[in-house]
Amino acid sequence: MKFLLLSLVLLLANAMAVAPAQSKIDNNRYTPVKANSKKITSKQQAAKIAKKRFGGKVLGVQNLNGEAFRVKLLTAKGHVIYVTVDAYTGKASR
């Protein structure tokens, strides 16, 4: 009986000593993206990035719920293309 009680006390003491260290590690593992960490905040910035990356003339820009921008471009060959610019990273893709 004494052995069982001693084991339980040691187990609880060990758990209490380890728990704060584990929560500290867990807190540092994931850092959420803050709402104000956007690189692109305006249609003008998105248009400039898309034009620099793909060339052509900007026909229009749509804000996609603050997460990205859709830029409509007219290329030198006369093709209309749509480019998405990520608001957080600033990356432009078709």
Rank of each mutant, 00 (worst) to 15 (best):
A50V: 09
A92T: 05
K91M: 06
A92W: 00
I49E: 00
I81S: 06
I81N: 03
V83L: 09
A17E: 14
K57Q: 11
K72T: 09
Y30M: 00
K52Q: 15
S7V: 11
L59N: 10
K39N: 05
A87S: 12
K43S: 00
S42K: 08
L10A: 15
M16I: 15
V61C: 02
N28H: 08
A50R: 10
I40M: 00
R29Y: 10
L64I: 11
L4G: 13
V80L: 01
K72V: 07
I25N: 10
A50Y: 08
A13T: 12
K77C: 12
Y30K: 11
A13V: 10
V85D: 01
D26E: 00
A92Q: 07
A15W: 11
V18G: 01
A13W: 10
L5Q: 13
L10E: 14
Q62I: 05
A92V: 02
M1Q: 07
V85I: 07
K77H: 12
I49W: 01
K51D: 03
L4R: 13
A35T: 04
S42E: 09
L73R: 07
A35G: 05
T41S: 07
T31P: 02
K43M: 03
Y82N: 12
N28V: 04
G66P: 07
K57T: 13
Y88A: 05
A76K: 07
A68K: 03
I81E: 09
Y82D: 05
A68D: 00
A92M: 08
L11F: 15
N65W: 02
I81H: 05
K48D: 05
V85E: 01
F69D: 02
A19K: 10
Y82F: 15
H79E: 11
M16D: 09
L12Q: 11
Y30N: 00
G60H: 08
S42C: 08
L6C: 02
A47N: 00
A13R: 11
N14Y: 06
G60C: 07
G60V: 08
A76F: 01
L4A: 13
Y88P: 09
